[in-house]
Design a protein around this nucleic acid. Sequence first.
DNA 1: AATGAATGAGGTTTCATTCAT
DNA 2: TATGAATGAAACCTCATTCAT
Lengths: 207, 207, 207, 207
Amino acid sequence: MGDGRTARAERSRELRRRQILDSSLSVFSEHGYWQTSITDLVKAAGVARGTFYLYFDSKQKIFLDLLEELIGRLRAAVRGVDPQADPTVDAQLKAIVAHILRTTAENRHLTRILFREAVGLDDAVQTRLTGFYDELRAYLVHTLELGVTLGVVRDDIDRETTASCILGALRGVVHRYVVDHDQDFDPDGVADAVVSFAMGGVRQRTA
Amino acid sequence: MGDGRTARAERSRELRRRQILDSSLSVFSEHGYWQTSITDLVKAAGVARGTFYLYFDSKQKIFLDLLEELIGRLRAAVRGVDPQADPTVDAQLKAIVAHILRTTAENRHLTRILFREAVGLDDAVQTRLTGFYDELRAYLVHTLELGVTLGVVRDDIDRETTASCILGALRGVVHRYVVDHDQDFDPDGVADAVVSFAMGGVRQRTA
Amino acid sequence: MGDGRTARAERSRELRRRQILDSSLSVFSEHGYWQTSITDLVKAAGVARGTFYLYFDSKQKIFLDLLEELIGRLRAAVRGVDPQADPTVDAQLKAIVAHILRTTAENRHLTRILFREAVGLDDAVQTRLTGFYDELRAYLVHTLELGVTLGVVRDDIDRETTASCILGALRGVVHRYVVDHDQDFDPDGVADAVVSFAMGGVRQRTA
Amino acid sequence: MGDGRTARAERSRELRRRQILDSSLSVFSEHGYWQTSITDLVKAAGVARGTFYLYFDSKQKIFLDLLEELIGRLRAAVRGVDPQADPTVDAQLKAIVAHILRTTAENRHLTRILFREAVGLDDAVQTRLTGFYDELRAYLVHTLELGVTLGVVRDDIDRETTASCILGALRGVVHRYVVDHDQDFDPDGVADAVVSFAMGGVRQRTA
DNA sequence: AATGAATGAGGTTTCATTCAT
DNA sequence: TATGAATGAAACCTCATTCAT
């Protein structure tokens, strides 16, 4: 029965933490990391200054926690597509891109932070971020090589540079449709265009 | 009378301004906007605190001035390619991309600021920045349409999304080769790969 | 009825209080009053923050309680020597000094607090402390006068100043042997030297 | 001529520093180190918060500076007596003691800090303080041995313990006449009594 | 034009104490 | 009785900007 009490406390603690995380997320997303003060965070959370520090060591720490959360979700979005689910390569790619677009759109605040704020911050944040992008790029390089092996991808491409292009193209559309504007968009249509571009380029094929 | 004196003073003033701008550039680029204090700037410039304010209204203002400078150079890089100089579309594109890569590499500090620091700052900066990217994207949309008209570009592409992709791909390689690493690279080779990717995509053509 | 229950409760309460007092003693002694937080105290005691306040009104109060305890023990040490036990004045003084040294050595923590921390605190503490020393000094003045009456002490001495000297000398050796170092020492030997100094001074007697 | 400006600035800087030191001294002396806040210090000095930090790194630092000042003066008081000025040992000692009493009385605030506040503080302070007392005690041990060599001091005394006694006795009178009360006193008379006690003890000499 | 001392609002963080459970 | 989450005043310190010299 002491267990019950402990469990309940544990649960309430988790709830409170969640509440502070969520409200801080909007504040960070709206004003930016540097322009956000602890005062802003606690006002938004509706708790006292001291309470904040019961749950997070510092401003940097809560930000890192938020960042970690988004990175986790994006990673899941990238990896989470079932490769067996669809036969053709284009369809698979489309599924991944659409998934990423949906995930980022569903987490607009977090994504905005990732694109706009989590850049040029404390070394800890910067390191975490660069690591994530490096990971993504490596994944793309790997995937391209797989494609070459399977004969689906040209073998005369510069893997590294092309991976950077694809990653950049992805960031480009996310920027355009998720970060910079609030309006809705059609993830499947955009994903279509992205894959079409990445696979076939823009050149007119002569008959 | 005094014209000579005025002109000389004017000139000296401009030199001093330049000196502060240049030293501030490295400091901003190395430590980031928020982690850079006026103290850092005046120490780097070797002038007194008060002197700084004789030349710039505020910390934000000098940063905006630096930003404006880079945007100007990049715009020139994009527009400055002589369309007549080379006959084929691919060669023209390659020339533009290579020019952009060279310009950013030559202004690594400024570029780093553009990519890493000039993001999530005051609304003024953010607005200026978004404006620049919108302008670039519009230019790309325009160029794509021109290409379609000329029959060089497929007409089934989503102009807006594709423009975002290309812009993103460009940012991607600049990030990869200029911002994140200090080492030299071959602008022409990279430009080749970028154009090849943008024009032809990655798909293997079946014979 | 309930008497048994009340008594048991009373007893358990006393035990708990003792436990907190004892653990707090070491903490205060090690880190000092101001550098010790309630958190430190409750961690050391192994009780919850709230529990602490069930037994003590405040941080200042528990400290005063500890101080009171030491003062009580020291007073007993000073007064507790049986004047009849030894015939000569020197031997009696030696017994008192040795007793004080032993008491302070046995309560090193408390003594350290008395010498190092209980100084410059709240007025309440300061007053209590000054009172204790005044009491000691008065006791010494009284004793000196008794000695004069008995013909054991020179009558040309300045009672007040001399009492201050003796009190200071005592504090000096306690500081040297108890407060500043942890190592053991020989209370009787030191007491000997102290009494020899206080009674005879350092001057070489000419034959 | 630029030199003149620099020198004037230098001088004004020193004056300001002095002003803050002096006002801080009274505040520390009155309220104690821990109960004194930076706010108290700047209010007393009549300067802005930031100004304080132009002259001192921290609260601890200004306190250490004050401490250093008093230690310097006391050291001078101890060493500064001209040994040739007076023939007899007692007269020399009396001169030293009187000098110390006068110095401490003239610097009542600083002395109070030394006795009441500079105890159990940050390690830096504590170390500086213990070092000073050790130095004094060593000086006394040395002096006693010199006395023994000259045949003025008994050679059967415990040098270390006796030095602690003398140091303690000195502290005792300073405490009594300087720290605990504000009223004036006769330094020469007290010095007389102290030396008389230290040299001859309290024992009645039998004819 | 150039200086750098001075300002004070506002930053992050701590901690003695309370109170609902 | 015992708990520990919550409080919020107040601590120390920074820094963009001003202004007398």
